[in-house]
Simulated scan of single mutants.
Amino acid sequence: MLLPARTDTKWFHDYIYQQAEIRFVKGRLKFGDSKNAAPFPSMVCVFNGGVTDED
């Protein structure tokens, strides 16, 4: 799942942190021939049935 990397929010700590494998995208995403990049950092979250790297 591609999401904004809002690590300071409640939803991140409730639903993402320690619930999914997280990979942060370096830089800001840009799609197609767009002139502007996203105004926020992004992360890719993989939910694998409740098993994380720490388990």
Rank of each mutant, 00 (worst) to 15 (best):
M1Y: 11
M1I: 13
L2T: 03
P4A: 04
P4R: 05
P4G: 08
P4H: 03
A5Q: 09
A5Y: 12
R6Y: 09
R6C: 07
R6S: 08
T7W: 00
T7Q: 04
T7P: 00
T7M: 12
D8I: 02
D8C: 06
D8N: 13
D8Q: 13
D8G: 15
T9S: 15
K10I: 06
W11P: 05
W11F: 15
W11I: 13
W11C: 04
W11Y: 14
F12Q: 07
F12S: 08
F12Y: 15
F12K: 12
H13M: 09
H13F: 09
D14H: 12
Y15F: 14
Y15A: 02
Y15R: 13
Y15P: 01
I16K: 04
I16Y: 01
I16E: 00
Y17C: 05
Q18Y: 10
Q18N: 15
Q19H: 15
A20L: 03
E21D: 08
I22G: 00
I22V: 15
R23M: 14
F24L: 05
F24Y: 13
K26P: 02
G27N: 03
G27D: 10
G27M: 05
G27V: 00
G27P: 02
R28H: 10
R28Y: 09
R28F: 10
R28L: 11
L29N: 04
L29Q: 03
K30L: 15
F31G: 06
F31C: 12
G32I: 06
G32Y: 02
D33S: 13
S34C: 07
S34K: 11
S34D: 05
K35W: 10
N36G: 00
A37M: 11
A37G: 09
A37Q: 12
A37Y: 06
A38W: 09
A38L: 14
A38T: 09
A38P: 00
P39L: 03
P39V: 06
P39T: 01
P39H: 07
P39R: 11
P39M: 05
P39A: 03
P39G: 03
P41W: 04
P41Y: 10
S42W: 08
S42L: 06
S42H: 11
M43A: 06
V44C: 07
V44F: 02
V44R: 08
C45W: 00
V46I: 15
V46N: 07
F47S: 02
F47Q: 02
F47R: 05
G50C: 06
V51F: 00
V51H: 01
V51I: 15
T52D: 00
T52I: 14
D53C: 12
D53Q: 12
D53Y: 10
D53V: 14
E54W: 03
E54N: 13
D55R: 01
D55Q: 07
D55E: 14
